[in-house]
Amino acid sequence: MKKSIFLIFTTLVIYTTSFGQRALSEQVSYFDVRIPNNQLDESIKTYNTIVETPYTLTVAELNAQSLADFEVEKANYVNVLKESEIEFQERLTNHDDEVIKAEARYDKEMKDFKDLTLLERLALTDQGKKPKLRVPSKPTYVKPREPQYIQPNLNDHLIFDNNVLADGVVLLGYEKGSDILFIINISKMIFQDNGGQTFYSQSTNLKVMKGADLINEKNFDDEFQFLTSSSSNTINLERYEKNNVNKIMKNIGKYINEEFGYIPVASSIKIEFPKNKNRAYDALENAKIKAISAYRKLKKETSSEIRERSKTELEAVRDVWKTELAKVDYNDKKAVMNKKIAKMIFFNLMRVDISLKDKTQAEETLGLMQERRIDLDLDYNDKITFTRLEEQVYKL
């Protein structure tokens, strides 16, 4: 009896230990960054932008001119009324003459119609060609509408605030400051007609300066391109030009971020950990908490400084995992640190190595896990996970 109780107790202990080592996980969403094509020197932390355009018209000037034009229109309204009344009287006089002509024409057509034979008249009537008196409608006087002030549509005018354009340039991963300077010079738009179509160019120059040194230079829209299938004298040129300036600024923003910025990319990572029921896995629990916290700091707008801090925190977590991995007994299923724990740690290490784009560490972790493949006794899903992570390591 005692032996049976002992066997039952032993089974329960083994089951409890196994359950305690069941892999739990948390999926953490964060924003990774795309490495720029042309990484700036590490000493560069801030940037500033200057935009130069040929457009000097201001909203205040446009409104003032619009109001002045409205006052002229109001003052001229009396003359407009007089001219409309004179024109109406002329139309009335002309109408009387047109009525006389229409009646005379009808009388002549009816005379000719009556001279026809009966059969001819019947045939024309069936065809709807019997003469009819068509008297023009009498003109109606429509009083001209009184002038009303309409606020100018800013989209139809070349109004730009260079400071606002400059503020719209954002270099992702950097703060505003003075370490580097983007100088954007936009010229007037040139229109060219060809075969009833309109083409354009609007040469724009971008210079990236660090002090007196030119880091990078690029031109935009300096060659003629297709604009519209209509000729230039039938389109609103200023509206097209304004839209193109905004397009150029957007293209410049895209270019400088692809070249020098750290573009946020929505990502997620899975962190695995054992159930820490009896405080046997405090180190792994703390590592999990710190890893999740580090990733949650990586927001879309997170600065490069905070990203570096998070990277340092993740590297510290990685060291904890490596230390705990060294304690694993791959041959003892009952051990607190057994192969199930090793599998969790290996997967965590590989995922973090990949997220940090640390090729050296990722290859090292991959090599260690490959050496322990037999000891780890991976199941079907584990093998799929391993293969996917392995492929990602090779792509680093």
Rank of each mutant, 00 (worst) to 15 (best):
K3R: 12
L7A: 10
F9S: 10
F9V: 08
V13P: 07
V13N: 08
T17L: 14
L40V: 08
L40I: 04
I44G: 08
V51D: 06
L57C: 01
L62H: 02
A64R: 10
Y77P: 06
V78L: 02
K82R: 14
E83H: 07
E83Y: 03
E85I: 11
E90G: 09
T93L: 14
H95Q: 11
V99K: 14
A104E: 15
Y106L: 07
Y106H: 15
L116A: 06
L116P: 07
T117K: 04
T117Y: 05
L118P: 02
T125G: 01
K129M: 14
K130V: 05
K132F: 03
R134K: 14
K138Y: 12
P139I: 10
P144L: 03
Q148V: 10
N153D: 15
N162Q: 10
V164P: 00
L165W: 00
D167R: 11
D167L: 08
D167M: 07
G173E: 04
K176W: 05
D179A: 10
I180D: 11
I180T: 09
N185S: 13
M189K: 14
M189F: 04
I190F: 05
F199K: 11
S201G: 01
V208P: 09
V208L: 10
M209Q: 11
L214H: 01
N216Y: 15
N219D: 13
D221G: 03
D221M: 08
Q225I: 02
T228P: 03
T228L: 04
S230C: 01
T234P: 01
N243K: 12
N244K: 13
N251L: 09
I252M: 02
G253R: 06
E258R: 04
E258W: 00
E258C: 00
E259S: 05
G261R: 00
G261K: 05
G261E: 09
K277Y: 14
R279L: 15
Y281E: 05
D282V: 12
A283V: 11
E285L: 05
N286A: 06
A287Q: 13
A287S: 15
K290V: 08
K299M: 07
E301R: 08
E301H: 05
S304K: 13
R307F: 15
E308F: 11
R309S: 15
K311H: 08
V317F: 03
D319G: 06
V320E: 15
W321G: 00
W321I: 02
K322F: 00
E324F: 06
V328Y: 04
N331I: 04
D332M: 03
K340G: 15
K340M: 10
A342H: 04
K343E: 14
I345Y: 06
I345W: 07
F347E: 09
F347T: 07
L349R: 10
R351Y: 02
R351F: 01
D353A: 12
S355A: 15
E364V: 10
E371P: 00
D377M: 12
L378I: 08
N381C: 01
T385K: 14
L396P: 06
